[in-house]
């Protein structure tokens, strides 16, 4: 478990102070795939580097499995870092060494014997699907392959946490997906807690179970991914969510329906577990016309979030009753302006 308490970090460069983090509290549970999203300069990299103390907080504490990293001596800290793997946007592989040697490095540093190193490295290369590249050099690999090697290297010392700072930002969408699937597999098979830093909401959507949104060095919103995607609170969060979830009626559709008389628009959320026969009820009980003008379904990790936009047409008082029915908490519809 990772816990940050009241973390602040101020950089001073040439007498100019920048507060990169301000009073950040964060809790990542064992087994989480935790996403941190924010725009450039929000403080994401600073935050992730606090977790292995590559950067020390100006104030506040970081706990890993209940132990305060600040209480460690330099050599204890080095040992603690062996329990925290890290992968990078630009992979940071050694170009002068073979893939085998790259993956072996953490084990060489820990003075593991040669036969054990060999077994472990081959096992890891197999796990990331690059067993045939052992004797290649990094510059003979594609970006996606390099990141797989970065992952294999990070896993070599059997960490319980994996930190990923923009690990897929240099990759194309398809390669990104394959790396994300690999991260999921690591999380499931090795039960490694993963922390992902990104500026792309689609990455959070695909693999994370929890998310924190950062802005100006602060966490402005945090929670279960389904909840945050379902009802984002802050403006920035809404913007991020809108990059992957289309819950706005397209302008072309809006134009066509705006002049229909005696009509009102409602946005109705739905999910697989929904058993309310809403459309049926509206038509039968309220005797009005129901027109589905827009719908969207989005996969969020292993769940879905969907919206239906209904145009109700009918007499004023009937529409009013229907509106009352739709606003019932169990349905949770919201009226939209035309």
């Amino acid at each position: 478990m990772i816990e940050m308490k009241h973390i602040s970090k101020t950089y001073t460069r040439k007498g100019v102070e920048t507060e990169a983090l301000h009073q950040v509290n964060l809790k990542v549970n064992e087994g989480d795939i935790y996403g941190v999203i924010g725009y450039s300069g929000a403080g994401k990299s600073t935050l992730i580097r606090m977790i292995n103390f590559l950067e020390k907080p100006t104030s506040g504490q970081v706990f890993i499995n209940g132990i305060d990293l600040g209480s460690y001596s330099t050599s204890q800290l080095r040992d603690a870092r062996k329990n925290i793997g890290m992968i990078f946007q630009h992979f940071n592989l050694l170009n002068s060494k073979t893939i085998f040697q790259n993956v072996a490095i953490p084990l060489v540093l820990s003075k593991v014997n040669k036969t054990q190193i060999k077994d472990r490295v081959l096992e890891l290369l197999d796990f990331v699907g690059l067993a045939d590249k052992a004797e290649s050099y990094p510059n003979e690999l594609s970006g996606g392959q390099k990141q797989r090697i970065g992952i294999a290297r990070a896993l070599a010392s059997n960490p319980s946490v994996l930190l990923c700072d923009e690990a897929t930002s240099a990759l194309d969408p398809q390669t990104t997906d394959s790396i994300l699937n690999l991260l999921k597999k690591i999380n499931e098979e090795y039960n490694i807690t993963i922390l992902i830093i990104t500026h792309e909401m689609s990455i959070i959507q695909k693999v994370c179970n929890r998310v924190a949104v950062m802005e100006n060095g602060e966490i402005i919103e945090e929670g279960n991914v389904l909840d945050v995607f379902g009802s984002p609170q802050q403006t920035s969060t809404k913007k991020f969510v809108q990059t992957v979830i289309h819950d706005e009626i397209p302008a072309s559709v809006k134009n066509k329906i705006k002049d229909v008389p005696n009509s009102r628009l409602f946005k109705v959320p739905f999910d697989q577990n929904d058993t309310n026969p809403i459309v049926n009820d509206l038509i039968r009980t309220f005797n009005i016309t129901v027109n589905i003008v827009f719908a969207s379904i989005n996969e969020i990790k292993d769940d879905t979030i969907g919206y239906l936009v209904l145009q109700l047409i009918g007499e004023k008082d009937l529409l009013e009753k229907a509106a009352g029915y739709l606003s019932h908490p169990e349905i949770g519809a919201k009226e939209l302006a035309k």
Partner: peptide, 24 residues
């Protein structure tokens, strides 16, 4: 980035020099 990787692996300063900086 190479130094950052070395640090993240818990390399000592000597190891960072010997296994990372000099070969690179």
């Amino acid at each position: 980035g190479i130094i950052e990787a070395a640090e993240s692996m818990g390399a000592t300063p000597f190891q960072t020099i010997w296994y990372f900086l000099i070969p690179e």
